[in-house]
């Protein structure tokens, strides 16, 4: 249990497995993930491209296209209630109202044929039962909150009239408009200019301090994690390999993969704003189609031994709040 949040356990993902059917077999995109999050907490999820961060986030909102996707095992407890068995229709009252998400690509995440006011107002009307006038007022208020100049005029503009950074602000306004308890930000700055990235991260921090929601921040950048998160989950090839409070993780990384990640930072002081892609570690991610048993990092691990490829190492608590999946730890 982490002591960093303000109490209530909001999200508890247990043994989640989300697989995709392809012509070559089942892709084990997420293959046994445990993530817990308390109210008010900021959790970082890191890992290199393709390790299953987005699929984990999308599974949490049940936004995985099925088929080809399928949640084959595990539970996703949202405030104590398992949402895996819920139908898409039953999920509607949770989406945006309790768990909201901001995607990586602000340029394509807004519908080009409706005004931003329409798209934000749509969420508000859906969940808050306000009339037209009240919805408009709330929309303008949200745009002002995320520092969009001239919100009264801008509500009537279309997405193509906004820059990338401004669109991401619109996305954030939309996500926060129903006061969700959890905001999932899936690499919200990766697609943006360097200077804009810092502004968006700043905005997220400001929103968090104003509205107090929990945040799950998915990112490539270890520097961003160090600055903004209280706890970090490190993912590798569909699995969680390490989890710890942020200071503990940076001081005392136990998993060889995490160690590699952290070793790849120091040269870049601008890590917070630069895309610190985590490919600094040699070798490639293993196939996710019908993966072999054993530690998935073995092929790239300096410390790999015989037993590493016999059975998959379990995620074990090695110190308070610090969990590692490695035979060495």
């Amino acid at each position: 249990m982490s002591a960093t949040g303000t109490g209530e356990r909001l999200l508890d993902i247990r043994g989640l497995k989300t697989h995709f059917k392809t012509d070559d077999g089942w892709v084990h995109a997420v293959d046994g993930v445990d993530i817990a999050l308390d109210a008010g907490e900021t959790l970082g999820v890191v890992g290199e491209s393709g390790c299953g961060k987005t699929i984990t986030a999308m599974s949490t909102l049940k936004l995985i296209p099925m088929p080809p996707g399928r949640i084959v095992a595990g539970q996703i407890l949202w405030r104590g209630r398992d949402i895996v068995p819920l139908t898409s229709d039953e999920m509607r009252s949770i989406r945006a109202k309790e768990i909201a998400i901001v995607f990586q690509e602000p340029m394509t995440s807004l519908n080009p044929v409706y005004t931003v006011g329409d798209q934000i107002g749509e969420v508000i009307r859906q969940h808050e039962g306000l009339n037209k006038k009240q919805t408009l007022d709330r929309t303008i208020e949200m745009l002002r909150l995320v520092h969009i100049p001239n919100p009264e005029r801008r509500v009537n503009d279309y997405p193509h009239q906004f820059s990338g950074g401004m669109r991401q602000r619109v996305m954030i306004a939309m996500a926060l408009s129903c006061n969700p308890k959890l905001l999932i930000a899936d690499e919200p700055t990766t697609a943006l200019d360097v200077t804009i990235q810092a502004q968006i991260l700043e905005l997220l921090a400001e929103m968090k301090s104003k509205l107090g929601m929990a945040v799950m921040l998915i990112t490539h950048a270890m520097g961003v994690v160090a600055e903004t998160c209280q706890r970090v989950v490190v993912m590798y090839a569909g699995k969680v390999v390490e989890e710890a409070p942020v200071r503990e993780l940076f001081r005392n990384p136990r998993h060889p993969y995490t160690q590699g990640l952290i070793r790849s930072i120091p040269r870049i002081d601008l890590a917070a704003v630069k895309k610190t892609r985590l490919e600094a570690i040699g070798g490639v991610v293993p196939r996710l189609i019908d993966p072999a048993p054993g530690c998935r990092f073995a092929a790239r691990c300096r410390f790999a031994k015989g037993i590493c490829s016999e059975a998959t190492p379990e995620l074990r608590e090695v110190a308070p709040g610090h969990k590692v999946a490695c035979v060495l730890a």
Binding site: M58, S88, M91, R95, I101, S109, N111, P112, V113, Y114
Partner: peptide
């Protein structure tokens, strides 16, 4: 992406399809 966004807003599937998909 914007269709996924529309779903993430908790809209009815019919609204997602008719409003966000068909018009485009």
């Amino acid at each position: 992406d914007y269709v996924t966004t529309a779903r993430s807003k908790g809209l009815r599937e019919r609204v997602v399809i008719v409003k966000h998909v068909v018009r485009n």
